[in-house]
Write a protein that binds this DNA or RNA. Structure first.
Length: 1029
RNA sequence: GGGCGCUUAGCUCAGUUGGUUAGAGCACCGCCAUUACACGGCGGUGGUCGCAGGUUCGAGUCCUGCAGCGCUCACCA
């Protein structure tokens, strides 16, 4: 079987170093940066899909003579990896904080080493032709240098700033999350209607909230100015229950009025709104905005762990409020609601189902939390503007905003193109609405932020300025921030003359860190968002900013950046694609890649995205085990269409019996359908196994008795059968060639040979066009048709009687086989490489118009070149007639259940006989003909008639005696089919509008076709009549 | 709620600028151990192209509306 040889093939590729990129080598540049997989877990079929396509592109262009680089590597995936490791430690009863930072990072490093090795092994197992010598990791020294340089540069250029913002805070992992890291989940909650008394005792208003615990931080209540009640309340104050704080009533048109008071009844908010909105600037993003507009304070009432706290900005804690301090947010909610109820201030409670942001890692509700974070000012034209201007003009919807369009020109403007084109819109809309990017993360695993900070009075800090001034200015940037009430206000070049300040020092490298620390500066404990280093991937992997630092990287940056194409999934157009474009353009003034190809998503059999976190991912090694790597690749490529996500029903393989079976499905709490963690063996329920879901989520751990079950899917049979077909066809062709008659003579090319060469030429062009448009399923289709339909079904079958004595045909066969292996190689590298040496050694002579450069390895072979002269339209047309005739005869044979062994006589008119003669024996071979003769004057009693191209063809000897009933049925059905066709065409031709408006050539064709169908009907009717006599 | 995509044979999917009998693989039915391959060969059954309108000589394809599914952004009083 083909898959057996995969390991040996690898060794040969490695020995020849055929995937190693040399920047000084000739050829057009073709480069791809792998989207670095996270080191959190092993790859699944989604990665296999993505990488199969990248490998196809890389191998195809390598064979076209390009100087190719496929850069491999992995991503440290900050939050994700740290969380995975923390979870594992938790199973051992340990917490992250039980370790020192260094010791913990060491633990994560071990995890990373294990999975990085697994991932690289998987890539090799899939046959990926990456330049593994250049493998990078987003936290290795090379990448770290790039990250450090990038941060320093942005800091120096004023594009990194310290911001006080409401961030998405995960109270469990105690880190800020990017918007994209927040998952919305539907939860059953309540609306609590709370009464707030007016300060003057003249009554109360009612606010509606889903988060009553935040009321401790309320600093205003807002009402819409159009609300009829607003005027009477203007200038009044409220007494905040529990806290006793006096808070203003502000007017803001953000507030939705209740439907009963003129609010839009179509707005669901109008249904439950009271018209009064409690304003908690420190705990809600919209309230933050309202607070800014009305200049009310933001009071933070929570600690970083989400508990109520009086130590993080809440000063006016009343005696009554003290009881809530220290409670968890969940507990505080219950107790505060109870307080309102006890005090007669709870007006109503309504059940309410709504979506709440959850941490995509810890899965707890995200808390909007006020904190100091580092931001990249991506809204600056130097970042956002350059990204928008990079877009291909014809892919921009509408026009770019004038301020963007008029921005400074740069190389690469208008050259970024998306495939399929519709994804350009995602990219554009993201940048048009982009917000500054929060890049600090409260983690230990990642690139530590290179900023040292000291807080103090301006006078005290001034004494440090002298020491700072002595530092190398090209390695040091100093910024100061005024501190008011413990919070930073704004960054500036220098501290003001007086007042408390934070002095921030950004260093390009660590050498002066110790000096700063001796002055009392502390290094920022946070790390950078993972996407910060990912955004630099096309730069960092090539040694930017200074490739000369690493000898083996010389020349890489200039040669391979910009790269050719980025192949990725649509979900990270914003997270990753955007940021690479902005950074690459900002730092290098170039595009990171010219094309962005967005491929479909792999879903499981239930239409759910295959993902690590869901635990429904299938390990490609499982499919390689059941079907082989080439089979997996071919199938994945054939599924790569541009519109449809790929749905892949998954089965399990019992490790005890090797049976394939459908697992027992369960529904998770989040509503997903997954394979139950422990499954019984299908024939023996006492034997158990662990599903991929069980292992991936840690619900079950495989043991010797309860082993992990592999997955498989019948979808891959397609590729397995195809690889098998190629294998056998090659064996057959080789045996024919090796047993060729010594006395073989050259002969003119037969119709079949000319047809085969024309099909090869056609397939090669179709292939190239499909690759150029990233329509990969068309590549698989072209190969499938070429190998199976054309080469195996027609060519190999057709040449059986002649090839051993025809030296020219032997050469065509050898050349066809050689070309097929080359063309198939980018999709099925293993089987083609395995067969390669056998086919290369044939020496059967050349074929005019076919250029097949010799090569020791298929992987480094040149793409076959076909001269335009092989594009033989006449041979294609004529052979199509041959196929139609053979099909017609086979159809009768099939319908009448005639043994393939039975030879028959064909009697026909001159044109059919001429066609058969021109086929060079193909019709006789393929249709099982014993003889071909002229139509007789009198029809033999045993003859069966078929219409072909408007005339009657008789098949004699097909049956011992004509079964009049069966024959009648066959001909009647044939006539009915043809008449249905004819009536459609006749109706068209009788329609004057059709004659007048349709293109004349089409009308003429309809007439011709109708005449032929009519002639077929006449011939069949004649046969039917003859049957009756 | 905005944006994008999808809905075609029992299943998974193709179907290029509107054009004549809507295709493939699997599954299913029949025939075949023919000397490459049963992971095979030959033949066959199977579709009112989600629904309703419209444009057109002609609609799976273009337009409008509706329904369902998926992704994504936003909201999340």
């Amino acid at each position: 079987m083909p898959s057996d040889a995969e390991g040996a093939v690898h060794a040969r590729w490695d020995a020849a170093r055929c995937f190693h990129a040399e920047p000084s080598a000739p050829g057009e540049t073709y480069a791809i940066f792998i989207p670095p997989p996270n080191v959190t877990a092993a790859l699944h079929l989604g990665h296999a899909f993505n990488n199969s396509l990248q490998d196809l592109l890389t191998r195809y262009h390598r064979m076209q003579g390009a100087n190719t680089l496929w850069m491999p590597g992995t991503d440290h995936a900050g939050i994700a990896t740290q969380t995975v490791v923390e979870k594992r430690l938790l199973l051992q009863g340990k917490k992250r904080t039980d370790f020192t930072r260094e010791a913990f990072v060491e633990k994560v490093q071990e995890w990373k080493d294990e999975y990085e090795a697994t991932i690289l092994g998987q890539l090799k197992g899939m046959g990926c032709s990456c330049d593994f010598d250049r493998t990078r990791f987003t936290m290795d020294e090379t990448c770290a240098t790039a990250v450090r340089h990038a941060f320093f540069t942005l800091f120096k250029d004023g594009l990194v700033y310290r911001g006080k913002r409401l961030v998405n805070w995960d109270p469990v992992t105690q880190t800020a999350l990017a918007d994209d890291e927040v998952e919305m989940e539907e939860v059953d909650g309540s609306f609590w209607y709370l009464k707030y008394p007016l300060a003057d005792g003249s009554g109360h208003i009612t606010v509606a909230t889903t988060r009553p615990e935040t009321m401790l931080g309320d600093t205003a209540v807002a009402v819409n100015a159009k609300d009829p009640r607003a005027a009477a309340l203007r200038g009044k104050k409220l007494r905040l229950p529990i806290v006793g704080r006096e808070i203003p009533i502000v007017e803001d048109d953000y507030v939705v009025m209740p439907a009963s008071l003129g609010g839009d009844p179509a707005d669901p908010k109008a249904q439950f709104a009271t018209g009064f909105l409690k304003v908690t600037p420190a705990h809600d993003p919209n309230d933050w905005d309202i607070g800014q507009r009305h200049n009310v304070a933001a009071i933070n009432v929570m600690a970083p762990d989400g508990s109520i706290s009086d130590r993080h900005g809440w000063l006016d804690v009343s005696a009554e409020a003290k009881q809530f301090v220290g409670l968890s947010r969940e507990e505080a909610r219950k107790r505060i609601v109870a307080w309102f109820k006890q005090n007669g201030l709870l007006e109503e409670v309504k059940p309410y189902r709504h979506s709440v942001g959850h941490s995509y890692r810890s899965h707890v509700p995200v808390e909007p939390y006020l904190s100091d974070q580092w931001y990249v000012r991506v809204t600056d034209d130097r970042l956002r503007g350059t990204a928008l201007r990079a877009m291909a003009k014809d892919q921009v919807e509408g026009a770019l905003e004038s301020s963007v369009a008029s921005g400074p020109a740069m190389a690469g403007d208008g050259e970024l193109r998306f495939f399929p084109a519709r994804y350009a819109k995602n990219f554009q809309m993201w940048h048009e609405n982009i917000r500054d990017w929060c890049i600090s993360r409260q983690l230990w695993w990642g690139h530590r932020i290179p900023v040292w900070t000291k807080r103090g009075e301006a006078s005290m800090l001034a004494s440090n300025m002298g020491a700072l001034a002595s530092l190398d200015p090209s390695h040091t940037v100093v910024r100061a921030a005024r501190v008011v009430d413990g919070a930073e206000v704004a960054l500036s070049a220098l501290p003001a003359a007086s007042g408390e300040h934070d002095l921030h020092v950004c260093l390009l490298d660590d050498t002066q860190g110790g000096m700063l620390e001796s002055l009392g500066f502390k290094r920022d404990p946070d790390v950078l968002d993972t996407w910060f280093s990912s955004a630099l991937w096309p730069l960092s992997t090539l040694g930017w900013p200074d490739p000369s630092k690493w000898p083996e990287m010389a020349g890489l940056l200039d040669r391979y950046n910009p790269s050719s194409v980025l192949c990725t999934a649509r979900e990270i157009i914003t997270l990753w694609v955007s940021r690479m474009v902005m950074f690459n353009r900002y730092f290098l003034g170039r595009l990171p890649f010219k094309h962005v190809f967005i491929h479909a998503m792999i879903q499981d059999g239930h239409g759910q995205k295959m993902s690590k976190s869901l635990g429904n991912g299938v390990d490609p090694r499982d499919i390689i085990h059941s079907h082989g790597s080439d089979a997996m690749r071919f199938t994945l490529v054939s599924m790569a269409t541009n519109t449809q996500d790929v749905r892949l029903p998954v089965d399990m393989v019992c490790p005890h019996t090797s049976e394939t079976f459908t697992p027992k499905w369960i529904t998770t709490s989040a509503g997903y359908t997954v394979a139950d963690a422990i499954q019984p063996s299908p024939k023996d329920a006492s034997k158990k196994m662990v599903s991929g879901f069980g292992a991936a989520t840690g619900v079950a751990t495989p043991t010797a008795e309860i082993p992990l079950a592999r997955n498989t899917s019948a979808r891959f049979d397609l590729g397995r059968n195809f690889a098998n077909k190629l294998w056998n066809a090659t064996r057959f062709a080789l045996s024919n060639l090796s047993q060729a008659d010594a006395a073989s003579q050259p002969a003119p090319l037969t119709l079949l040979d000319r047809w085969m060469l024309a099909r090869l030429e056609l397939a090669s062009r179709a292939y190239g066009a499909a690759v150029a448009e990233y329509e990969f399923h068309r590549v698989a289709e072209a190969l499938y048709d070429l190998v199976w339909r054309d080469f195996c079904d027609w060519y190999l079958e057709g040449i059986k009687p002649t090839v051993r004595s025809n030296a020219t045909q032997q050469a065509v066969l050898a050349a066809s086989l050689d070309a097929i292996l080359r063309m198939l190689h980018p999709v099925c590298p293993f089987v083609t490489e395995t067969l390669w040496s056998n086919v290369q050694g044939l020496a059967k002579g050349s074929v005019d118009g076919v250029a097949l450069q010799p090569s020791a390895l298929c992987a480094t072979a040149a793409w076959p070149r076909f001269a335009a002269s092989l594009r033989d339209e006449k041979a294609l047309a004529e052979f199509a007639r041959v196929q139609a005739l053979v099909d017609a005869i086979r159809k009768v044979r099939g319908e009448r259940q005639v043994s393939p062994k039975r030879r028959i006589a064909l009697l026909a008119g001159e044109s059919v006989r001429a066609l058969i003669a021109s086929s060079g024996g193909v019709v006789e071979t393929m249709a099982g003909l014993e003889s071909v003769g002229a139509s007789p004057a009198a029809r033999p009693a045993t003859a069966v008639a078929i219409p072909f191209e408007g005339s009657e063809v008789l098949l004699d000897g097909l049956v011992d005696a004509v079964d009049a009933g069966a024959e009648n049925a066959r001909l009647s059905k044939l006539i009915a089919d043809r008449e249905k066709q004819a009536s459609g065409m006749r109706a068209k031709l009788e329609n004057e509008a059709y004659i007048a408006k349709a293109p004349p050539a089409l009308v003429e064709e309809t007439r011709k076709k109708l005449a032929e169908v009519d002639a077929d009907i006449a011939a069949a009717k004649q046969a039917l009549a003859a049957l009756a006599t």
